[in-house]
């Protein structure tokens, strides 16, 4: 295929005929006044600005609603913990509430008879009327008649 020969468009009879046809088409129209185009342009820009503002408002409202919902309900627990409950509660999870076992007691080694084990929450340790509860051991304390400071009484 040979290279097509292109004449300059200025002295081409086809160009002159096409320009004449274009001019004839242009003469057949009555262009709208420029003021009408200006008014339509202003309306179009106003519509675009309004649409952009509406989009911004929607985005901000949605974001605010999502943030407020999250603050209201707090963090959602993981789905695996709530959906698949463990058959035996593990003591290594301090956040998991247990109804039958106290949190401080181990289910495998119960502290039966231990003086240093902390009692369950259902039976709080007896406290002295005016003293500190932490310094009193509930099972091994003997009734004393000495001074409240804890020094043994001198025998004659």
């Amino acid at each position: 295929m040979s290279e097509p020969e292109l004449r300059p468009a200025g002295d081409d009879p086809l160009a002159r005929a096409l320009k004449r046809a274009a001019a004839a088409g242009g003469r057949r129209i009555v262009p709208a006044p420029a003021a009408q185009v200006t008014v339509r342009g202003m309306r179009r820009r106003a519509r675009r600005v309004a649409a952009a503002a509406a989009c911004v408002v929607c985005v901000l409202a949605g974001t605010g609603a999502a943030v407020s919902l999250r603050e209201t309900h707090g963090p959602v627990p993981p789905a695996s913990v709530t959906d698949t409950p463990s058959p035996s509660p593990s003591p290594s999870e301090p956040g998991e509430p247990s109804a039958s076992v106290p949190p401080t007691a181990s289910p495998t080694t119960p502290p039966a008879g231990s003086a240093t084990a902390s009692p369950p929450e259902s039976s709080p340790p007896p406290t002295s009327p005016g003293g500190d509860a932490a310094s009193v051991t509930p099972t091994t304390q003997a009734p004393t008649t000495g001074s409240p400071s804890g020094t043994p009484p001198e025998r004659p």
Binding site: L18, A21, A22, A23, A24, G25, G26, R27, I29, P31, A34, A35, V37, T38
Partner: peptide, 18 residues
């Protein structure tokens, strides 16, 4: 812009018409 519109609208309509 209004001057540009008045000067070129007929010419552009003729071109787009073809």
């Amino acid at each position: 812009f209004e001057e540009f519109y008045a000067h070129s609208v007929t010419q552009l309509v003729g071109q787009v018409y073809l």
